[in-house]
Computed example of a mutant assay.
Amino acid sequence: MTLRSVCVYCASSLGADPRFAEAARTVGTTLARRGIRLVYGGGRVGLMGMVADAALAAGGEVVGVIPAFLQAREVHHTGVTELLVVESMHARKAAMADRADAFIALPGGFGTFEEFFEVITWTQLDLQRKPVGLLNVAGFYDGLLAFIDHARAARLVREEHRAIVSSADRIDELLAALEGWAPNPTPKWRGELS
């Protein structure tokens, strides 16, 4: 799969570990140098702002999508290639997904987690056929990956649905995994309804 556009989910704060900011800059720069458009939440603050600034500084195209209520609080990035102002968080997520070939979650909080799990669910339900990845910076997502595997062992997540989620601690490795991903359109309820 050729990636032309990647949606990046991440924190609107910097977090406690300076490796998070370093990773955000590396992701933005890497996407731009590969000619991959960055789609993100449109903010100028935290890791969101850093990934956008790095992509722009490296000559990349950056599309920000922000709800009007956040734009009104003056947290939007004014230097992006394109800024889409939408009415709600739901519209934001849909617009970001429409413009992306794949999704990457950097370290973040509840918003990042929610966005990440929603796109996994959309792929699981065959509403889209797009890969999803975690950039596991400094082991940030070790616990989450272990929990996902726990759900798989408990037979609440199917093996083929676990395969939707790629992870790596380096952006080059993660992009390679996303590019090599192929959808497995296994019905969510295969054999359970009849």
Rank of each mutant, 00 (worst) to 15 (best):
T2H: 15
L3R: 09
S5Y: 07
C7W: 03
Y9T: 02
G15P: 02
A21E: 15
A23T: 04
V27E: 01
G28P: 06
T30W: 07
G35S: 05
G42V: 08
V45M: 13
V45P: 03
G46L: 07
L47S: 04
M48D: 02
M48I: 04
G49V: 07
M50P: 05
M50K: 11
V51H: 06
A52R: 05
D53C: 07
A54H: 07
A57R: 09
A58I: 08
G59R: 08
G60R: 06
E61W: 06
V63S: 04
V63D: 03
P67F: 03
A68M: 12
A68L: 12
F69W: 15
L70A: 10
L70S: 08
L70I: 09
A72Y: 10
A72S: 15
R73P: 14
R73A: 13
E74P: 08
V75E: 10
V80T: 12
E82H: 11
L83H: 13
E87M: 08
S88E: 08
A91V: 12
R92A: 07
A94P: 05
R99Q: 13
F103Q: 01
F103G: 00
F103Y: 10
P107T: 04
G108R: 06
G108W: 08
G111I: 06
F113W: 12
E114I: 14
E115H: 09
F116I: 04
F117N: 01
F117Q: 01
I120V: 09
W122D: 01
T123S: 02
T123H: 00
Q124R: 02
L125C: 04
L125G: 02
L127Y: 10
Q128F: 04
K130V: 01
P131T: 02
G133C: 06
L135C: 07
V137L: 08
G139W: 09
D142I: 08
A146F: 09
D149F: 06
A151P: 00
R152C: 03
R152E: 05
R155V: 08
V157D: 01
R158H: 05
R158A: 01
H161A: 00
R162Y: 00
A163K: 05
I164N: 00
S167P: 15
A168S: 15
A168F: 11
R170Y: 14
E173L: 14
L174D: 07
L175Q: 08
E179F: 10
W181H: 02
W181P: 00
A182Q: 15
A182S: 12
N184F: 04
N184I: 05
N184A: 15
T186D: 00
T186C: 00
P187Q: 03
P187F: 00
R190H: 14
R190Q: 12
S194Y: 11
S194D: 12
